[in-house]
Amino acid sequence: MCGRYAATADPDELIEAFEVEVDATGETSRSVLVNPQDPPAGTPDYNMAPSKQAPVVLTRVQRGADGTQDESAEPARQLRHLTWGLVPSWAKDPKVGLRMTNARAETLLDKPAFARAAVARRCLVPAAGWYEWQVSPVAKDTKGKPRKQPFYMHRGDGDDIGFAGLYEFWRDKNAAQDDPSAWVVSFTIITTAAEPGLDRVHDRQPVVLERADWREWLDPGTTDPDAVRALLESPGAGRFEAYPIGTEVNTTRNNGPHLLDRLPDEALIGAVNPATGEVLGG
């Protein structure tokens, strides 16, 4: 799964890195959060969690001032703020998004909640890296349960990460026709089996698309299910590095670059080295 990640870039950096043509981050989309987002959407967030609005890249015909699409216009690559947790258009309540933060690549095109979006509404979710919690094979916590050690995963070559994602539009039928906050625009992150090494941390990982595949993934003209499946196939192991970090990341209100600080081996208790399989800290 992917339940937390680091979105550390500001909009200007994302516009350059992802070759964005239209900055649509100012478009109104309803937040599902009870309290104001902290840090605010559009600023670096080192502890991005479900239900927050996050930067997402998609290719779509831009809507005009009257809210309609000019079908004769060319689709443009946009940067938008979308809510993490997919809310299908047919959902009765946007709270369903809490159960749809991830979509499994293996069944993506078979599930009613994801199948239509998989061939029509795909996106990239920019990230510096993501977090997973490793269940210790030997150590227990104070409650007698297996101890969980957080790890941070990132690209070893330092390149930008673009998670494969899907997005959807949901409208509150009780809202006024001209109410822009009637819309919840949401996304989900696609996951797959973890590659060797990372599977010592967790058995799942987000699908990270190579830069060469970004254009085809975002292209609304890519509607063949087999072509979508092919893009989700891993190019092979070895792209990522994983290292242990402090438990401060466990609490979503904690934030800042210090969350990415590496925890020294001597501070570990029963954690498994992802590269070697060695148990550290007894």
Rank of each mutant, 00 (worst) to 15 (best):
Y152N: 04
R147N: 10
K111P: 11
A139H: 03
K111V: 14
V138K: 03
P150A: 03
W133D: 03
F151T: 00
Q149L: 02
N102C: 07
A105K: 08
G156I: 08
D110N: 14
T107M: 07
R155S: 13
M153K: 07
F114Y: 15
V135N: 10
Q149D: 02
Q134N: 08
W133R: 09
P146H: 10
A105W: 02
Q134I: 01
Y152V: 01
R121G: 00
S136C: 10
K148I: 01
L109Y: 02
D141S: 06
A127C: 05
A105C: 09
A120D: 12
A128E: 14
K145V: 09
R121C: 09
R121I: 02
V125A: 04
A127R: 04
A120Y: 11
A128M: 13
R104Y: 06
F151W: 10
V135A: 14
T142R: 15
V138L: 02
R147M: 11
G97M: 02
S136P: 05
R155P: 06
D141I: 11
A103C: 05
K148N: 07
V138N: 04
Q149V: 03
D141F: 07
T142L: 12
Q134G: 05
R121N: 14
P126V: 04
A128F: 13
E106V: 03
V138H: 04
K140Q: 15
L108G: 04
A139P: 00
A115N: 12
L98V: 09
T107C: 08
Q134H: 02
F151D: 00
R122E: 05
L124K: 02
V138T: 12
P150W: 03
R155T: 09
P150V: 02
V125Y: 01
R116S: 14
G97F: 01
A127V: 05
A120L: 12
D141V: 12
E106K: 08
R116I: 10
P126Y: 02
Q134R: 03
L124W: 05
P146M: 01
K143I: 07
G97E: 03
P126M: 04
Q134P: 01
R116W: 13
A127H: 10
A127W: 05
K111L: 13
T101C: 10
A120M: 11
V138C: 10
R155H: 09
